[in-house]
Amino acid sequence: MASQGTKRSYEQMETDGERQNATEIRASVGKMIDGIGRFYIQMCTELKLSDYEGRLIQNSLTIERMVLSAFDERRNKYLEEHPSAGKDPKKTGGPIYKRVDRKWMRELVLYDKEEIRRIWRQANNGDDATAGLTHMMIWHSNLNDTTYQRTRALVRTGMDPRMCSLMQGSTLPRRSGAAGAAVKGVGTMVMELIRMIKRGINDRNFWRGENGRKTRSAYERMCNILKGKFQTAAQRAMMDQVRESRNPGNAEIEDLIFLARSALILRGSVAHKSCLPACVYGPAVASGYDFEKEGYSLVGIDPFKLLQNSQVYSLIRPNENPAHKSQLVWMACNSAAFEDLRVLSFIRGTKVSPRGKLSTRGVQIASNENMDAMESSTLELRSRYWAIRTRSGGNTNQQRASAGQISVQPAFSVQRNLPFDKPTIMAAFTGNTEGRTSDMRAEIIRMMEGAKPEEMSFQGRGVFELSDERAANPIVPSFDMSNEGSYFFGDNAEEYDN
């Protein structure tokens, strides 16, 4: 993207840094990872977990959730003011799984939030270390993106479920800051804005008074975040219109849905970061690795190297396929839920299948599930090659597409044709070009129609051997075009429920 120079890199967003050079960025990201790792080690000690239990991804998720809940100030305040039966607002906890007599047992633990905050700050040299908290939120978000298709949420806001490739980060909490905003897809931002506008339509006082002023500035800020994701002048001009509207209503909703559809071809720039579970960072720190000293990046080879040398386990339900569970977590670790499966298959070195073909449910185990038949197995999170994460949407291309997802959002900077089903997408653009945004709409449609099938995206960008740390010898991959490109292809993934 041309304006790259004016933006802070995501590592800076990730670490609240002012302008830093590459070495400083690597050190501050490393410091953040160190903090998460030290916190995780301490929690495993508190909970008396064995090494194996500490490497269980379900335990990692519970521990991450506990610290996120302990620092969720708004919710904590709300819980104190609106006490609900049987919930102690000062405590947080969740299921911890232990191996007892050759069987997995679930144990519900409860801790004072104050105590968890103390352990977290102690692991982070006394700081609140917001960057580390956001990092864990993005890992949870990436896992949700890989596990669930947001059909219901899309339909509720009037969008087409086939636009799911635009929904990265749709389950990120509001408090995820600049680093969170960077990884949100165009569809996620559109959905947040539509929800806001709908509230304004239904509630006369939404934009009024002292609160209304705050609401208005939040609305304009979200519009600017979305505008910054678009790469064409016409899309940005249309966002200006939406932002400046005196009284946002149905016309703005129409414009936003139009823009979301246009992003299936004229893709937005959305950041991709490899955020790993805390149970990967903990053992690495415990083994003596100093992330701050060595430096770390979320968008280069580092996460690949770390996963190459990590042992992570997962509980497996009786009829689940461990290899499929591994694929789910591998995609989440690489922030690749909406990437082209052919690119992923090449990088991973084994075939990556669409969601609907995987015999696996989510990673988390519900409290009512029976533990008797639970097994555990090693997650295979290694890769054959590594590639640089991208934040450009890439230019655009036609490809055989599917009944489910009709476009992709690249996660890796790797040369390819970008699949999208042009006739299906263009069919949504018939007729409606009147109104105050008509010239911009016409211009956007013209650009979409001009998108050429034979153009290559990320020209000359390749993948790298894991021994090639400096990215000196790019390998331009070859793809098996007979395979499906979309992950949520004609899909039956479970729906995400809060």
Rank of each mutant, 00 (worst) to 15 (best):
K325S: 07
A403K: 14
M447A: 06
E14V: 04
N124Q: 13
A403T: 15
N59C: 02
Y52A: 15
Y296M: 11
T360Q: 04
K77P: 00
F346C: 14
F304V: 15
D112C: 12
N124L: 02
L315M: 15
L341P: 08
K422H: 14
G295L: 04
D480R: 15
E115Y: 05
E455Y: 04
K31M: 12
E244L: 02
T433P: 10
E210K: 08
R446A: 12
G200W: 09
L379P: 08
S478G: 07
S310E: 00
D16E: 13
I406V: 15
M374S: 06
I197W: 10
D290L: 07
C333F: 06
R162M: 07
H324P: 09
A428D: 00
T45M: 08
Q149T: 06
R26P: 01
D16G: 14
R8I: 00
L381D: 08
S457M: 01
F338L: 06
E339R: 00
R400Q: 09
Y10A: 14
I138H: 03
G132C: 08
A373D: 03
F71L: 10
V299W: 11
V270R: 07
D491I: 03
M426D: 00
M167R: 04
G462N: 11
W120S: 06
E455D: 08
L298F: 12
N432Q: 14
M189Y: 11
S60G: 14
K351D: 03
G462C: 08
E80P: 00
R342D: 04
S478L: 14
V100A: 14
Q241R: 06
V285M: 14
H135K: 11
C44E: 11
W386T: 08
K77R: 15
D127T: 13
G86Q: 13
S3A: 15
I201G: 01
Y385R: 13
R267Q: 07
D145A: 12
K91I: 00
N205Q: 08
I444K: 05
M331A: 08
D340Q: 10
K31F: 05
D34T: 07
G394W: 07
T157G: 01
E254V: 10
D145E: 12
G5N: 07
Q311D: 00
C275Q: 05
E294Q: 15
P318N: 04
G209Q: 09
C164R: 02
E292S: 10
D51A: 13
K305N: 11
P419D: 00
I265L: 15
E495T: 09
E484Y: 00
A2G: 01
T171A: 05
F39H: 00
F489L: 07
A286M: 12
T215R: 02
E46D: 11
F230N: 03
A234P: 15
Y296G: 03
P474H: 01
A123G: 15
D480W: 01
F258S: 06
R162L: 07
M447W: 05
P410I: 00
L266Q: 06
N144P: 05
E64D: 12
N492P: 00
S69K: 05
G362M: 07
M43P: 01
S367A: 14
K7F: 00
F412G: 00
M196L: 10
T15I: 15
L259Q: 08
D112I: 07
Y281S: 06
R152A: 04
L381K: 02
V299E: 08
R208Q: 05
Y487V: 00
G356K: 12
A284P: 13
A337C: 14
V363P: 03
P89Y: 13
G185Y: 05
Y296A: 14
A182M: 05
E495G: 08
R391F: 04
R436S: 06
V155R: 10
M448L: 15
P477D: 00
L344R: 02
A493E: 06
D340N: 13
L306Q: 15
Y496M: 11
V155K: 14
L68V: 09
L172A: 14
I25W: 03
A263Y: 02
V343C: 08
K7W: 02
T215A: 13
R156T: 05
D480N: 07
W104N: 09
D255T: 05
W386Y: 10
R216H: 12
R441T: 07
N309F: 03
T378V: 06
S69C: 11
T360P: 07
N125E: 10
E24S: 05
R106V: 08
G404S: 15
A428H: 15
G295P: 07
G393K: 04
E210L: 12
E18F: 09
P303T: 11
S326Y: 11
S457Y: 01
V155E: 02
G132M: 09
K273S: 05
V408R: 00
I445V: 14
F429D: 01
K305S: 09
N498M: 13
R150C: 08
P477A: 05
N334W: 02
A260M: 11
V155S: 14
L328N: 12
S269I: 10
D88E: 03
M440H: 09
R204T: 04
P248D: 04
G212P: 03
K7Q: 02
Y148N: 11
V312G: 01
R121P: 00
G485K: 10
V352N: 06
P419Q: 05
N211C: 15
R121C: 12
R317I: 08
R243G: 05
N142K: 10
T6V: 00
L79C: 10
C333A: 15
E73V: 14
F479G: 05
M238A: 15
H135P: 08
S392M: 05
I365W: 10
L276H: 12
G228D: 04
S345F: 04
F488G: 01
R221T: 03
D145M: 09
M66D: 10
D497A: 13
M238Y: 00
D34S: 12
P453K: 11
R117A: 07
S165Y: 04
T62A: 13
Q122H: 14
E14L: 14
K184T: 05
I197F: 10
G490S: 06
Q149D: 02
V109K: 12
S486E: 01
T130L: 12
E469Y: 09
I138L: 14
F489D: 07
E449Q: 09
R236G: 08
K91S: 02
K77L: 12
K357D: 08
C279Y: 12
V242M: 15
A129F: 03
I57Q: 08
T92K: 05
G485W: 14
Q231N: 08
C223W: 12
A332N: 06
E369Y: 13
D34E: 15
E339W: 09
G185L: 04
V186N: 05
G86V: 00
E46F: 13
V408C: 14
M238E: 09
R400S: 09
K273H: 05
Y97C: 12
S478M: 03
V183C: 07
I194F: 03
I301P: 05
M196K: 06
Q12W: 04
S69L: 04
S245H: 01
F258M: 09
D72L: 04
A336Q: 05
R384E: 03
N417R: 15
L341M: 09
N492M: 10
V414K: 01
T130V: 15
K357P: 01
R355Y: 06
I365S: 04
E114H: 04
K229L: 03
V100N: 11
R150Y: 07
T45N: 11
P474V: 13
A336H: 01
A234R: 07
R236E: 10
T360N: 09
Q311N: 15
F230E: 13
R382I: 02
E46P: 14
N370I: 11
S269C: 14
G30W: 09
A278L: 11
A251D: 10
K452V: 14
Q308V: 13
G393M: 01
N125Y: 13
R74E: 07
N144H: 04
A153K: 03
E192S: 05
I406A: 10
F489A: 00
D255A: 04
Q12L: 12
T171W: 04
E449T: 15
T424C: 11
R199V: 11
T146H: 03
M105V: 11
R236W: 07
A233I: 04
V100R: 11
L466K: 02
A85M: 02
L226A: 09
G209W: 03
M371H: 05
M239A: 15
Q327A: 03
E495M: 11
W139G: 11
L154Q: 04
Q459E: 11
N224A: 10
S9Q: 11
